[in-house]
């Protein structure tokens, strides 16, 4: 069963487009929403969290409208992208209040809040007021407010923004642990490596539309007009180039210092033929890599001129 089903879902803010005609289903696991600022990630997350209702089309979570159905929001944990919280409260007071408002009984809310703060590594600071927190501490506190009522579905909007590298690694690990515990998590970011550190399942959003979805490799296959690059660092680049040049799947070969880069529309076949060429011509290979396995390259393709719809 799909947890989120968006059917021709659009959202406008007056004349400004937020999300345009999105039809999309979310099954489960950790899914990254990737796109530049203003692409529509936060709008989509807010619609899933029941903060916005579609201007046209429909979006359901667990089969219900999260904007209109109070009960389904009990299953959702949402951490917004902005920093503003009830700064006058301590972290424990804030998370306890949020747990109470999410339906945790009064007698259990304090423990639920402490557990959530402990999961986010905030126990030592839980009695301090949020006003004095660093960005990293605020992000952790926000995440604690999202998980304190033990929701099944987490919506984390830019949870790593402004966080220092050490805290980023820690938060990434904690989000992964939540995913491993069976939660369905949607994480948005405009920073490619942040998403990449969390999941290989991504949805690329651009100009309010879902441009592509799947894992990095599936997305790569969707855009066959953009050849996949394979970098071969070796002692005889011209020998490999000679072997590959006649193949129809090879779009371009370029030479770099100490190797070559092959652009191909059939990566699997290309890898086989590189291996054959290496063996046949006794080439010494020092490194074989694909720049396109990095999300950055995929994102560049998808949001570049050629990738635009």
């Amino acid at each position: 069963m799909s947890i989120v089903v968006a059917d021709s879902c659009s959202k406008w803010y007056g004349h400004v487009l937020g999300v345009s005609d999105v039809s999309w289903k979310l099954g489960g696991g950790i899914v990254g929403l990737l796109g530049p600022n203003g692409a529509g990630k936060s709008t989509l997350i807010k619609m899933m969290g029941g903060l916005l209702q579609p201007s046209r089309g429909s979006l359901t979570v667990y089969g219900r409208s999260p904007f209109h159905d109070v009960a389904v929001r009990r299953r959702i944990g949402y951490a917004p992208e902005h920093e503003a919280t009830w700064d006058e409260l301590s972290a424990l007071e804030l998370v306890t209040a949020m747990a109470r408002l999410a339906g945790v009984p009064a007698g259990k809310a304090d423990k639920a809040a402490k557990d959530a703060l402990a999961q986010m590594g905030m126990i030592a600071a839980m009695h301090r007021r949020v006003r004095g927190f660093s960005k990293g501490m605020r992000q952790r506190t926000k995440l604690a407010t999202a998980i304190a009522h033990d929701p099944d579905f987490l919506l984390l909007d830019e949870p790593l923004t402004g966080v220092d590298p050490v805290a980023r690694v820690d938060i990434v690990e904690r989000i992964k642990q939540l995913g491993a515990a069976g939660k369905t998590i949607v994480v948005s970011s405009h920073v490619l490596y942040e998403i990449e550190a969390l999941t290989s399942d991504i949805v690329v959003i651009y100009r309010g539309q879902v441009l592509a979805e799947g894992n990095v490799y599936e997305i790569r296959r969707l855009i066959d007009r953009h050849p996949h690059r394979i970098r071969v660092e070796c002692d005889q680049p011209r020998a490999i180039a000679t072997a590959l040049a006649p193949e129809d799947h090879v779009a371009r070969i370029s030479f770099e210092r100490g190797g070559l880069v092959v652009e191909t529309r059939d990566p699997d076949r290309c890898y086989d033929q590189i291996a054959q060429a290496v063996l046949a011509r006794s080439v010494t290979v020092s490194a074989l890599s694909s720049p396109d396995n990095n999300l950055g390259a995929v994102f560049e393709y998808l949001t570049g001129d050629g990738g635009r719809r």
Binding site: L51, V70, R73, Y78, P80, A84, T85, A102
Partner: peptide
């Protein structure tokens, strides 16, 4: 200040 976003996402009227 958008602190209301926390509230709108809760299962409350």
């Amino acid at each position: 200040e958008r602190t209301s976003t926390y509230l709108w996402s809760r299962p409350i009227a």
